[in-house]
Design a protein around this nucleic acid. Structure first.
Lengths: 269, 269
DNA sequence: TGTATCGGTTCATATATTGAACCATTGGTT
DNA sequence: AACCAATGGTTCAATATATGAACCGATACA
């Protein structure tokens, strides 16, 4: 692991729940030496990626991040183009919905909307989605570049009793997702969460991300699944269009088939 | 210079004008070896700070930046709290206005608003403001931590004919700014731009940033300066309040004095 | 066919990173 | 007031890691 990678890794310990971290605490969190961590933090501070709270001496994320995020979003608009269709999807399904983007071999959370319909709802507090244990991830495996598979199969971490930790089962599930046009995952990452994902494409016409409905498992009836399918397909079409891409015809075909089938059809897992 | 710092520096070559950079081009820009640059980019990609355009192989800023920017803004709200007062200031003065935040020894551009009043207006396309050559910078020197001075004096880069490159002149200008409650800089960074800055404080009650009016020099009459002073003070009060800080009494006193004086008073430069 | 790019990789060299031990300061406890 | 246990931060010998010239394969062009 390069020194730069170790340095950047420090940033991932900051979150909304833990916005400020002292040197010693960060050493413990990262399991690294104090001198090393301090030098890493200095490099990050130099670049404006962290700053020190002048009173507490604790470190927090810095203002340069805003700059870069702005450049990113202005030159590769993703977030803005997702807000409206996501709201619509949340409204139509009554569940929490989110969009993730693939970068390299990682799925990053981009935006989420929680429906106000129910008092219980799914809360998403991760920054990246595991490829094998979420509907988004399986959707990426189904439609993303092939090298994702080896990455996913290399570490089938168990999160719940329902997490798929067997390579063959995962591949079968991904194949089913591909046939369906939607990836489905029930409680693989968090118990009692049932998720359905559709792929999204960008101007390169390659897989760029996912739109997902994450519902409380007991609420996801056969009938609701049909509704979700229809609106998810719509959301995927809109986002793909907004991102400058075109949906591959085979996905449209798979959706048509899936939507015309009896609501009794269930995920194979 | 640490390897991590070199790695992070690569990010600064991306901008709205140059959103995608190929490996070779980035090597030329950064003046570094291809193998090294490639490894640095891999580290950045690993962390989601850059991603490769799948078709062109060129690199661009990555989605992880959005994540971190979101955490930063949600835990240290700066930008959101600035929008409304900045609009008001632009409206009232008819000139371009901006807010910068101090992090470490660097002033970062945070947000700007261009007034629609005139067809010619000041455009700001920098990410950081030099301490010695801008009103914002001199304001930081006047009200920020003392160590800023040594940093500023260490490299008095000349940008225009009017840039202050003499240490004593700069210190005198900063002292004048402190007496005034406003920093003034005419054409020090860009010719024909006349800027006036006021300091902003945050919850630590330490200097946190600046609010600035950047006007086309020929438009800044003595009378307009008085108007700008008044509205700038208001904007500074609002932003300081929104950032959870309190304005030191001596600044309020300086403002009162400055505002009660004849409009004939001009910057000492 | 030859040439000039491009992105990416290899491996011996040497330079920059590392961490145990250290210091200074702070805040709480006896 | 002396003590202790934290904190943030620094030093320097040992060594692990970064470096870049040379290389490869692919693509584009004349």
């Amino acid at each position: 692991m390069s020194s730069a990678a170790k340095t950047l890794e420090l940033l991932s310990y900051f979150s909304e729940l833990r916005p400020e971290i002292g040197l010693s605490q960060l050493c413990r969190l990262a399991g690294r030496d104090k001198a090393t961590t301090h030098r890493h933090l200095q490099a990050l501070e130099e670049a404006g990626f962290v700053e020190q709270n002048p009173s507490s001496k604790a470190y927090r994320l810095g203002p340069a991040l805003l700059q870069f995020a702005q450049v990113r979003e202005r030159t590769v608009p993703r977030k803005a183009a997702v807000e409206q269709p996501l709201k619509q999807l949340a409204e139509a399904t009554g569940e929490t919905v989110h969009v993730a983007v693939l970068s390299g071999t990682t799925l990053y959370a981009l935006e989420q909307v929680e429906s106000v319909k129910h008092s219980t709802r799914v809360l998403i507090d991760v920054q990246t989605f595991p490829l094998h244990a979420t509907a988004s991830g399986q959707c990426a495996l189904a439609y993303g570049p092939d090298e994702l598979n080896s990455h996913a199969l290399a570490k089938l971490t168990r999160f719940t009793d329902e997490t798929i930790t067997d390579a063959d089962t995962l591949l079968a599930e991904v194949a089913a997702a591909k046939a369906r046009g939607f990836a489905i995952c029930s409680g693989g990452f968090e118990s009692d969460v049932h998720s359905i994902s559709a792929p999204v494409f960008d101007q390169t016409n390659l897989f760029a991300g996912t739109v997902t409905v994450a519902g409380v498992a007991t609420r996801i009836t056969h009938q609701l699944v049909q509704t979700i399918y229809a609106h998810l397909a719509d959301a995927s079409r809109t986002v793909t269009h907004n991102w400058g891409g075109r949906l591959p015809p085979d996905i449209e075909a798979a959706w048509t088939t899936t939507l015309s089938m009896s609501p009794a059809l269930e995920p194979t897992s």
